[in-house]
Simulated scan of single mutants.
Amino acid sequence: MIVVAGEALIDLVVTADGQRAVPGGSPANVAVTLARLDQPVRLLARLGPDGYGRQIADHLAANRVDLRWAVHAEEPTSVAVATLNAAGQASYEFRLDGTADWQWTPQELPDLAGSSATALHTGSLALALAPGAHVLEGLLSGERDRDGLTLSIDLNLRPSIVTDRAAEQERVRRQIRLAHLVKASDEDLAWLYPDRSVGDVLAEWREAGVSCAVVTRGGEGALLLAPNGALHEQQAVRTTVVDTVGAGDSFTGGLLAALADVDALGDRPADRLAAVTEQQWSRVLRQAATVAALTCAHRGADPPRKPEVDALLTAAG
């Protein structure tokens, strides 16, 4: 079982034709992607008591995301306003003050050591906004010390919300040391480290103890630095782009699902990732890119199901 921790919010998607409210949030999108790829997944989230919160819970349950660790919060649901341009690319505005996702307490966290979890994934705003970010960081720290499951972080930075670049650099420097797998976009790195190359950043992360680092580059594909220092490159899978909402999250879900399929998640995580072969890394990246491409071909954060992914992978050889 893969555990995903973090925000489950409402994306209020605005287009020239009007607006619609759809469940979203980066960690929740990753969880749905994993479930649609037939991976057992449990979401550790705080769900509001309002209509939006019920809509999110219904959506997650309908997609077979296990909610037994979800917290029934008293605070309202967070809202992200996603405005799409003519090319389908999204810009975001967030309504987050006093909402449910950021109010974690240590008492709300489960005992992962007593569970069947093989991996814990988190990131995005859940690791950036206090007070909850400190609680989830503590969870990562304890699990890193225990060495019992693979820890994954997606930076997914939001400079429009967390604007202090120096503080974000320090936070990322501290948190990536807790993870075995770190994923970022080229936009994340361009904002976080405007005067540094991607290669320099990845080398620093590897030195800090990250086993595997991945950078997505939109239409240019993705890069993966493997535990042995080899750099793998994956071209973007061509598709007709409807919009890019949820594409990065579905890439992460596809990546984790592919790693689970080759038994690379679980106890002794650094050893498991080091055992992944060159050919397997290529397949892992290809699946992640395929899942992201199929998501871009759908409207909104609507990741594909496993048969659709398998069919495209088979057709591509």
Rank of each mutant, 00 (worst) to 15 (best):
275 A>Q: 08
10 I>V: 13
275 A>E: 01
234 Q>M: 11
7 E>V: 05
154 D>P: 00
301 A>F: 01
315 A>M: 12
174 R>V: 03
187 E>P: 11
170 E>P: 10
167 A>F: 06
129 L>C: 11
250 S>C: 08
179 A>M: 08
32 V>S: 03
57 A>F: 05
48 G>N: 03
90 A>Q: 01
197 S>Y: 03
127 L>E: 04
232 H>C: 05
58 D>S: 12
18 G>N: 05
305 R>K: 13
218 G>V: 02
171 R>N: 07
147 D>N: 14
54 R>K: 15
87 A>R: 15
195 D>T: 10
220 E>M: 12
117 A>F: 10
169 Q>I: 02
154 D>W: 06
109 L>K: 09
97 D>H: 15
295 T>M: 04
51 G>R: 14
36 R>K: 06
161 I>R: 15
105 T>S: 11
81 V>R: 10
228 N>Q: 09
143 E>S: 08
267 D>H: 15
69 W>M: 03
205 W>V: 03
313 L>D: 00
75 E>Y: 07
124 S>E: 06
198 V>C: 11
33 T>H: 08
317 G>C: 12
99 T>K: 13
288 A>I: 01
227 P>C: 06
165 R>N: 03
311 A>Q: 13
37 L>W: 03
243 D>C: 08
157 L>S: 03
256 L>H: 11
121 H>G: 00
126 A>K: 07
204 E>C: 01
293 A>K: 10
204 E>D: 12
307 P>G: 04
120 L>S: 05
128 A>W: 01
305 R>Y: 12
285 L>E: 04
288 A>E: 00
122 T>K: 13
52 Y>C: 06
4 V>S: 01
303 P>L: 00
142 G>H: 10
287 Q>S: 07
67 L>V: 08
138 G>R: 14
60 L>K: 07
23 P>M: 02
54 R>V: 09
18 G>P: 05
167 A>M: 07
57 A>I: 07
72 H>Y: 14
21 A>Q: 13
89 Q>H: 15
189 L>Y: 10
207 E>F: 13
259 L>E: 04
280 Q>Y: 02
128 A>D: 00
168 E>F: 14
232 H>S: 02
139 L>F: 10
308 E>F: 11
132 G>K: 07
92 Y>I: 08
302 D>C: 09
185 S>Y: 05
267 D>F: 15
127 L>T: 02
285 L>M: 09
270 A>N: 10
123 G>H: 03
164 D>W: 00
196 R>Y: 05
182 V>Y: 04
159 P>I: 06
11 D>Q: 06
201 V>A: 04
119 A>E: 06
125 L>R: 10
175 Q>R: 15
62 A>I: 06
196 R>I: 13
22 V>P: 03
78 S>P: 10
180 H>N: 12
6 G>S: 06
119 A>P: 04
64 R>G: 02
309 V>A: 00
274 A>G: 05
166 A>F: 10
39 Q>P: 06
170 E>D: 15
156 N>Q: 11
121 H>T: 01
57 A>W: 05
196 R>W: 15
6 G>P: 08
312 L>K: 14
187 E>W: 02
116 S>R: 11
126 A>R: 09
218 G>D: 12
277 T>I: 06
58 D>I: 09
184 A>S: 07
287 Q>H: 13
56 I>P: 08
137 E>N: 13
